[in-house]
Design a binder for these strands. Structure first.
Lengths: 201, 201
DNA sequence: CTGGACTGTCAACACGTGTTGGCCTACGGT
DNA sequence: ACCGTAGGCCAACACGTGTTGACAGTCCAG
C-alpha cells in the first residue's frame, strides 16, 4: 500500500483532487486490469499482460498502484445501487432485483472480475461477501416479514443471483447464455421474491 | 498424456488391471491433489505442495500423471449418481435433488475442486459443463412437461445448485454456511421443483 | 530560461514454477 | 541367489512472475 500522495500543486482546498497529467494512464491501467481480472482470474491476470493491454510499461503499474494486490484493491470498488424496496410494489421486488442484477453484470466486468477472483483469492472473497452482506441485507430487511431473518434471506438471494452469474457469465453454460433477459426475469424473479417475502418454511 | 503403460506382470486376461506396488502412492497423490485443487484452485495448487502433502517427491507426480494437466484430468472423474425421477413422487423431485446434491458436495472435495478450478481453467469449465449437461439434463427431460425444454430447465437448476455450492462451500458466506440441511432443502427444494416441473412462464 | 518534479522506458533481480534426467534402492520372478 | 525393473529421491534446467532501481524525456512554476 502506501501510495505516493502528490501534493495538490494549485488549489489545495478544492474537493476534486487536482487532475494529474497521468490520469489517462491511470484509468487505462484500471480498465485493462478490470478486463484481465474478469477474463483470467487473479493469478493468470499478470501485470505484464495488463500493462501490454494498457500500452505502458509494467513498472508504471507498480508506481501508480504499489503492487498487484493494490491494483486489484483499486478495481474492487463497487456500488450495487440497489433500489429501495419500500418504494416499489412488494409483488414486483423479485423481478426488479433480478433485472437490476442483470444490468449490473452486463454494464462492465467489475462483478465478473470480483467473482472470478473471489473464488481463489481471499481478499476477493471477502470483498464479494462484504458487497452482498452490506448492500443486499438491508434490502432484505425491508422486504421480509421478520427483519431478524434478513441475513439468511439475503444469502438465499445471493445464492441464486450469483449462481446465475456463475453459469451465464463465468462458466458460460450454453442454455444459461441463450436465455433472454425477460425469460430470466420470469424464471428467477419469483424465486428471489419467495426468498425475500415468503414465510419461513 | 501418454502415460507409461506397465505390462501386467502376471494375469493378463483378468479384468482388474493387476495391482501395482505403487498404488498407495498413486492414490495418495490423487487425494492430496483433490484437496489442494479444492482448496486453492488450479494455479495456486502447485505440484510441489501436492507432493509435500502426499509425502513424496514432485517428480513422482510427473511420472504417474504425466503433467499437471494430466493430474487434474485424473481428479475430474465424477458420477453424480442422480436418481431417476420416474421412480419418485413428482412432488418430491425438487427436495430429493437438493438433498442429493448436498450429499455429493460434502462427501469429498471433488465437486468443490472442479468448481474452483472451472472458474479460471478452461478444461475445468468444460468438464463442469459436461457433468451438468450430461447428467442433469436427462433428469430434467423425464421430469419436465416438454422434453424439448430440458436443457433450459437443467441450466436453471444448475444455476441454483451451483449458486448454493458457491456461496456455501467456496465463498463461505456466513448465513449460507450456517443454514442447516433441512432448511436448505425446504428453501431450495421448491425452487428446483418449479424449474423442473412448472409450465413455461 | 532554468530547476525540479512528473511521466515513462529499460534492464535486471530474486524467486517459484512445471518439468527433466540421472542415480540409488529394494522388491520379486526365475 | 540373482538380476532386471519398478519405485523413489535429488539436483538442475528453462521460464515467467512480481518487483526494483537507474536513466531519459517533458511539463510547468519561478
Amino acid at each position: 500500500m502506501a501510495l505516493k500522495e502528490h501534493p495538490a500543486p494549485t488549489s489545495a482546498a478544492t474537493d476534486a483532487p487536482a487532475p494529474r497529467r497521468s490520469d489517462a494512464t491511470r484509468t487505462a491501467i484500471l480498465d485493462a486490469a478490470r478486463a484481465r481480472f474478469a477474463a483470467d482470474g487473479y493469478e493468470r491476470a499478470t501485470i505484464r499482460a495488463i500493462a501490454r493491454d494498457a500500452r505502458i510499461d509494467p513498472s508504471m503499474v507498480m508506481r501508480y498502484y504499489g503492487s498487484k494486490d493494490g491494483l486489484f484493491a483499486a478495481v474492487l470498488d463497487v456500488d450495487l445501487r440497489l433500489p429501495d424496496p419500500a418504494g416499489l410494489d412488494p409483488r414486483d421486488v423479485g423481478r426488479v432485483l433480478v433485472s437490476h442484477f442483470l444490468d449490473l453484470w452486463e454494464e462492465n466486468g467489475v462483478l465478473t472480475a470480483i467473482l472470478r477472483v473471489g473464488v481463489t483469492n481471499q481478499a476477493g472473497a471477502e470483498r464479494l461477501q462484504g458487497i452482498f452482506k452490506d448492500q443486499l441485507t438491508p434490502v432484505a430487511r425491508r422486504a421480509c416479514p421478520d427483519p431478524e431473518q434478513a441475513p439468511v434471506r439475503a444469502a438465499l438471494c445471493a445464492s441464486q443471483l450469483l449462481g446465475l452469474a456463475l453459469t451465464r457469465y463465468v462458466l458460460r453454460i450454453g442454455p444459461a447464455v441463450a436465455l433472454s433477459r425477460p425469460e430470466i426475469v420470469a424464471w428467477l424473479g419469483p424465486t428471489v421474491q419467495r426468498y425475500l417475502t415468503a414465510p419461513h418454511p
